[in-house]
Design a protein around this nucleic acid. Sequence first.
DNA 1: GGGGTATTACCCAGAAGTTA
DNA 2: TAACTTCTGGGTAATACCCC
Length: 263
Amino acid sequence: MGVREADADGKDRKFVTALARGLEVLRAFTPSEGQLGNGEIAERTGLAKPTVSRLTYTLTKLGYLAHLERLGKYQLTPAALALGYSALANMRIRQVARVHMQELADYAGASVALGTRDRLGLIYVEHCRSKYGVMLRLALGSRIPVATTAMGRAMIAAMSEPERDWLLGYVKRAEGKNWPQVKAGIERAVKEVAARGFTLSLGEWERDINAVGAACLAPDGSGLFAFNCGAPAFQFTRERLESDIGPRLVNMVRNVEVDLGGR
DNA sequence: GGGGTATTACCCAGAAGTTA
DNA sequence: TAACTTCTGGGTAATACCCC
C-alpha cells in the first residue's frame, strides 16, 4: 500500500506523483530506523536510487531532513516533527478523551491508548498510563498492526463493508501464509464487536500481552478512531477483560462520543 | 584494484499550465 | 472541459567516490 496503490489507475490527473514520492521518503523513517542512507530509503520505498537521491537532497534543502555526513545517512528534523504536532494538536478527540482514558487507566492499572489508522497500522495519538501496575513500552506515535491487535480489529469491525473489504485485500497480501489465521481472528472480532461492542486480543500480537479494543466513530466528522486497554496477561485475564475492562471501555467510548457532540 | 553506493547526464513520458 | 504546449520528473546508464 504505497504511492502506486494511492494512484491505483495511474490516470488521476489531480495526483501529484512527485509530492507523493517525497512524502514516501519521509515515511521510510520509523522510531526504530531513524537514520537511513539513500540505498536503504530506495529499498523501503521501491523508488530508484537517483530519484531518492534527488528527493533527499530537496527535503534536506527544505529542512525536513538532516544529512549526517559522518554516517552518510539522513534523519528527520524537528521541521518534520512540527507537521505531526500540528496534526495532533488539531485532533479534538484527544482533548475530549484524555480525562476518560486516564480514569480507566487508573482503574485498570493499565495503559489506555487512542489510535487512528495509517495504511496497515494504527498510530497512537493519545496514551494514558496508570500510576500503578506494569506498563507496556508503547507511547505516543507508536505504531501497531491493524490486523492482529484488539485496537485494529475493533476498527476493522466498525468499518463499512466496502471499506473493510478494500483494506483486507491489502492485509491478505501483506500476511501471506498467515492470512487464514489472521482472517479468522478478524472474523471473530467482527462478531464480538456486533455482540458486545468490544473485541479481545489474547497474546496474538505480542505474547503475554492481553488487550481489549473498541472503535469510536467521531460524531464531529473527524473519522474513525479506536481505543485499547492493555496489560501483561497475568494482570488482564480473559475473564477480567470480558466481564470488567471490556464493558468499561465501551462505556468510556460512549462518554467520549457524547462529549464530542454525539448521542 | 574491486565492490558497493551515490551522483550526474541525458532523454522521454506525462504532469501541469494555458487558452478557447 | 478539451486540446494543445511547455517543461518537470524520473528511469537508465555512466561516472565518481569511498572503503577495504
